[in-house]
Nucleic acid binder design. Sequence first.
RNA 1: GCCCUCGUAGUCUAAUGGAUAAAACGCGAGCCUUCGAAGCUCGAUUUGGGGGUUCGAAUCCCUCCGAGGGCACCA
Length: 576
Amino acid sequence: MRKKLESILRRAIGKGVEISTPESEKFGHYSTNAALKLAKVKKAAPHKLGEPRPVGRENPLKLAGELVSKIEKCAPKDFFERIEIAAPGFINFHISKNVLRQELFLISRQKEKYGRSDAGRGKKIIIEYSSPNVAKPMHVGHLRSTIIGDSLANIYEFLGYKVVRWNYVGDWGTQFGKLIAAYKRWGNKAEIEKSPIKELLSLYVRFHKEESENPVFANEGRGEFMKLESGDAGNKKLWYWFRVESIKEFKKIYGLLGVKFDITLGESFFEPVLKSLIERIYARKIAQESEGALIIPLEKYGLPPALIQKSDESSLYLTRDIASLEYRLKKYKPFEIIYVVSNEQTLHFEQLFAAAEIVRLKKAKLAHVKFGLVLGEKGKKLSTRSGDTVQLEELLRKSVDLARKIVREKNPKLSAKEKEAIAEAVGIGAVKYNDLKENRLSDISFDWNKMLDFSGDSAPYLQYTRARLKSILRKARITKKAYLEFLGDDIEMSIIRKLAEFPEVVRRSAEILMTNNIAKYLYELANLANKYYESTPILKDENAPRRNARLVLIDSAASIMKSGLGLLGIKAPEKI
RNA sequence: GCCCUCGUAGUCUAAUGGAUAAAACGCGAGCCUUCGAAGCUCGAUUUGGGGGUUCGAAUCCCUCCGAGGGCACCA
């Protein structure tokens, strides 16, 4: 429907006409500011020297009138119910009820396939997300990367791209030197086997505390990492053990979250090629020595130099990222690589992308999809080192527990198995939605009450709305002939318009690499659906064809809600 | 000191330069004898200060104030 409007406007006015969907339908189903924009262009039109400068600008209202008559000529009869012009020069389109009904018919046929496209056919995108660090518990910060990345991957797949979901585990670096040093000083094997991440974390936290008071520790940590990197068998064995135990625990959390990866490859995977990478870069005179270390100068990008080798000859995060980039380009030939990493690392990615250009590795579009921090209640950064983070496992458990309690209260007749599945879908969904509904760039403060609020603008609200629609649909049968001509109430037309916007919302979401517009869309759709539910009898509608048409409408709404929630990685149970 | 984000209602967040700045939580008043009250209806409370660009600014530019993050051997 929107596509149709786009093509009409293209024929009538030309390319690049902006179409918006006004908040209030008072301003039409669709609206354009083309007349305002064109009036401005005319004003700015060049004039010959010596001739008088054009006075004023084209009157936008007058121009809008001219555009409307052109548009009417290009549009099929009965496409528009009416076109209005509003000050200062907006053109507002009211689509005819029949066109809306036709769109609903299409949606009712396509169901969850509605909005899929092949826009990305033949294009491969690597999305790197989650990326937890070995020996550290996943906390609420990793949650953002994990679910934003997972959702973006879903969205790109929906649009026909081939997506490679990549978990780039932090399993190499100086921190492992510190951990090994700490283990050698105070470690206890049995304790670690009992609860690995908890023990490893407490070793790490203790080491950091001592290090801040005594510089001997820092050297010790660096020394152990150097040994690890040069292949010391004892250290390697410890490292491997820490890694295996950690990944086991991560998998538990991914299971809970319902998040999957195609590739789980950490930094350590690239360790064997680092030496030769550094030599190659050095030989090409791209890198230079500075204070005993090797750097790539980035002055022309206005950035501080990129350090690729420490003075003790061990490698760095950035070095491994360059190696990883080279590997990905060669092996996958992607169209784009998206790094879903918090905005603390903005400088790192600016350096990486600049270095990639210098090293001639910029053969794909590279994007850092950054997001704000999850701050503690006092608005301060949460730190693993000081041990004050909210751990992900705890958060998910609490949320599922609460959902379980509520479903037992509200729906005692369901089987134990059903209740458990619902508790998980609702509890996990609530946590995911809380992040995904927000603009990812904002810092958010962590708040238990907000996280565990299952009313209002929340996943449980959406799931509940759909479950109510489904419970009506379970009690009825939809006939083959739809009778959509019986739909005509304002709210019915509003719902259809909303449903018809879904493809555009998804397209836009991929374009801006954001998820909050999908969340907002689903909330608005659910809002309309609830109003409809409260105001309009469906099963009890005495007019049989109209009853059927209404069933088709809510069936379509339920499909789009499931589809949209799916893009956010949230389950939509039939009953909740 | 330099760089990057950001400042919207009591709280927490929305808003491709667009129309009356929008929700949620919390607060107040209603609605279960129409299909599930995790719901619906109604109400009060908002763009840090000052300039500028624009037909139009929360959004762009300048400046001041405030917050968070980053800045060579962490990741």
